[in-house]
Write a protein that binds this DNA or RNA. Structure first.
Lengths: 255, 255
DNA sequence: CGACCGATTGACACAGCTCAAATGAAGTGG
DNA sequence: CCACTTCATTTGAGCTGTGTCAATCGGTCG
């Protein structure tokens, strides 16, 4: 596993989403990537030409501003994820992208992605599945924000993050680097920064996590999933082998 | 406009999403639809064979159960919408579908939809755009649930609904039939039924809406958008003419 | 060393929840 | 056509999770 390449974790993800042939992997490896360092919390610029953003390391988030000052994070992207896939077909997205901590990203021109979809039905299918999977996560967040209290929201978010990081081999032993502040957690969970801090302390006090500025370690996974009412069923594509290709996709021409 | 057909409002939507040729419209008209009446609040069955659900009249919602009894509505579908599009590529969805009030729906076998995508790149693109548009709505709901108070959430929901209904000619003069109870509103906005009632009364008291059991009429659109911090920019495809086809899509083979 | 930013703590206020009961509207069966 | 049921709406009274404000502490970096 050439985990040094910017696209290596993307490959891990796509391969699990839809089994890839060797030729597909070569296509991914040939994508023109513009690797860029983003400082902590830095805005990720949107250029005229539609581009997607591949996360190489660190965390990236999509967020909206609500009212004057309140921020709501609407999605989180970890290494191997592509942010802004909807840019492929929808001209303008309504929310902004920024890094949480410091991050390394790679810009990916849409036309190159489209060329790839053109060349491989397997890859095309994997990317579409990816975007549906993203939507499944959005729905789960809605359930969390609407019907869970703060402690459960944070616990749920951590559970989700662990599963997603494990899929790209970044959370061995329930242990991973975090690239966010408690304020970021607050903005993701729809609570205030002060309350986020109280929740973090409560999770520590309960002995389910060790959580310092740079690192998070889950000490009691079962307890955490219980607190967060977490079930990984909406993340099948992160935990289970790729489902079979639907029908004879190769004949299908779409997009 | 043959607004008597089950698919007529779907056509209105798709045509605005991506301009359709006459041949495309014939393809849509030829879809095999199993029209079904659903009683008020009735669960919408999922069969073994993957099927999508076209809403013909009434409202349909996707929801999740959280904890033992709490329900969170994650998406709303109005006439012309297709629910369960993700079933095309993802085997299992994690949430359930039900009607809110009484509704008429049409089951639509996935293989027929895929045949359609196969036959027309324009339609394929329209459907993909549709699913991205759905995701944009999910993100907006996340912002609402996370960072707006109850009054604004409800106001925002109503604004969104009006725009979506107007796109299928069901909300002339800001006036439309509602197929939900206040409890449904509560479950969509992540608040309790009691509080939903208080919010409704407050909106009435402010003189921005007339709202009885079966009907809702907006008396002051500007005030309502202000209360709900609503901007229709995330619903472009409902309000503006279709964006051009991206690149030379006809060459693209995907899915 | 100072400046800055994030984490932490405490006190208080309030939006929204729960419980419980009353009212109203619509449908059902005798 | 009237009792009866059922379900949605409405109202009131506490209770609690979470927000706001403000201050302190601690680490990091120039």
């Amino acid at each position: 596993m050439e985990s040094g390449r910017p696209y290596s974790r993307l490959l891990m993800r796509l391969d699990r989403m839809t089994n890839l042939r060797k030729a597909d992997k070569l296509l991914v490896a040939a994508l023109p990537l513009t690797v860029t360092n983003i400082p902590a919390g830095g805005q990720i610029a949107r250029f005229d030409e539609p581009q997607c953003v591949l996360v190489v390391s660190g965390f990236v988030c999509g967020y909206k501003r609500v009212g004057m000052s309140r921020r709501q994070i609407t999605s989180l992207f970890v290494p191997g994820d592509i942010a802004g896939l909807h840019g492929l077909l929808l001209p303008s997205s309504n929310d902004s992208l920024s890094a949480l901590g410091a991050a390394v990203i790679a810009y990916l021109p849409c036309h190159a992605l489209e060329g790839m979809l053109d060349a491989s039905p397997q890859l095309a299918q994997a990317l579409w599945r990816e975007s549906f999977s993203e939507a499944a996560i959005l729905r789960e967040w809605i359930a969390s924000l609407g019907r869970r209290e703060a402690l459960a929201r944070v616990a749920h978010l951590i559970c989700e993050l662990v599963v997603r990081l494990q899929a790209v081999d970044l959370a061995r032993d329930y242990n991973f680097a975090i690239y966010w502040t408690q304020m970021d957690v607050a903005d993701a969970c729809g609570i205030s920064a002060v309350h986020a801090n109280r929740v973090v302390q409560e999770l520590r006090r309960l002995g389910v996590v060790e959580w310092d500025a740079k690192h998070l370690r889950i000490r009691d996974w079962d307890a955490l999933t219980k607190i967060g009412e977490f079930s990984d069923s909406y993340l099948q594509h992160y935990t289970r082998p790729a489902p079979p290709i639907r029908y004879e996709m190769d004949h299908h021409q779409a997009f």
